[in-house]
């Protein structure tokens, strides 16, 4: 795997957008790894939460938009509570999802959800909230 830094990640528009949406200075992360070590969902993620910040600090938003991690994040806030520099990771994950959703791409087609009759309505509601614009 290889990644070429084309321009200063600080100047990258999409990184700036994530900073703006989340209100978090993603460049203050110094990669201690505490978010990943404490994350209850980390084992299901393809990119660990601390790596999400490294990708952002390198300006590689493309990889993150393709990643499962932001969608697996349950926003339980364990990482946010434990982060030594006070970053709200859940807000950053939300910002990444937001960026994807603003492309107006539906991850879930309500009509294709199987067994929607027996699913609790709240599951469907949150599903639509999270996976559709």
């Amino acid at each position: 795997m290889k990644y070429t830094i084309k321009k200063d990640p600080h100047e990258d528009e999409r990184v700036q957008e994530i900073i703006e949406i989340s209100g978090q200075n993603i460049f203050s992360c110094y990669q201690c790894g505490r978010c990943s070590s404490g994350c209850p969902m980390a084992e299901f993620m393809d990119i660990l939460p601390n790596q999400v910040f490294m990708y952002l600090q390198e300006g590689d938003v493309d990889t993150l938009l393709k990643a499962k991690t932001p969608w697996i994040c349950a926003a339980c806030f364990t990482c946010t509570v434990r982060c030594p520099v006070g970053l709200d990771l859940a807000a950053v994950m939300e910002a990444i999802r937001e960026l994807q959703l603003r492309k107006n791409y539906d991850f879930v087609d309500p009509y294709k959800v199987e067994e929607r009759d027996i699913l609790p309505p709240i599951a469907l509601v949150s599903n639509f909230r999270k996976f559709t614009p």
Binding site: M1, K2, T4, Q31, Q51, M54, E58
Partner: peptide
Amino acid sequence: VDTLTGRIIEV
């Protein structure tokens, strides 16, 4: 190299 994400970095 970025050992945190595990990939080669070029700039």
